[in-house]
């Protein structure tokens, strides 16, 4: 599996108001917080169409979450890597990767997650 390059684009699928503000379509830090295994699940989306990206979400993430997708948060890999985080490919499913190397301190995690949310672009599902 190819390693993730800084110029690659990543996306995180967004499911509810816990992760974004419907008022101003702003992302919340929780959109990027790692799970309890220290991983933030993302997909590598460089070189594929918008339709293909949404298809990945519908096929790979919606069944697991059991709810409808509200949107996605696109972010360039270099915005992640600059915080001393890594992006490790982990397939299957195809194009899946995890943001890892999070500091164990929750406050540090939140501060970085706020910055990632600020650097990401929220795209609402039509």
């Amino acid at each position: 599996m190819d390693s993730v390059k800084p110029e690659e684009k990543l996306t995180r699928f967004i499911f509810d108001s816990n992760e974004y503000r419907s008022s101003d379509k702003g992302l919340k830090h929780s959109a990027f917080m790692p799970n309890n295994k220290g991983k933030t699940s993302v997909f590598r989306i460089s070189g594929i169409s918008d339709e293909e990206i949404w298809d990945i979400g519908e096929r790979e993430v919606v069944p697991k979450k059991g709810k409808a997708m509200k949107g996605r948060a696109d972010i360039p890999a270099y915005e992640v890597l600059k915080h001393n985080l890594s992006v490790d490919p982990e397939e299957p499913p195809p194009r899946h990767a995890n943001i890892v190397s999070w500091n164990l301190n929750r406050q540090d995690q939140r501060l970085i997650a706020v910055k990632l949310a600020a650097d990401a672009n929220f795209i609402e599902k039509q």
């Binding site: 503000r21 830090h29 929750r106 600020a118």
Partner: peptide, 20 residues
């Protein structure tokens, strides 16, 4: 109000993307 994966609750105030 935000539910955290860690089982905690966070209250968020924001005034734009970088003022939180």
């Amino acid at each position: 109000i935000i539910a955290e994966y860690s089982g905690e609750i966070t209250f968020e105030w924001s005034k734009g993307k970088r003022h939180v």
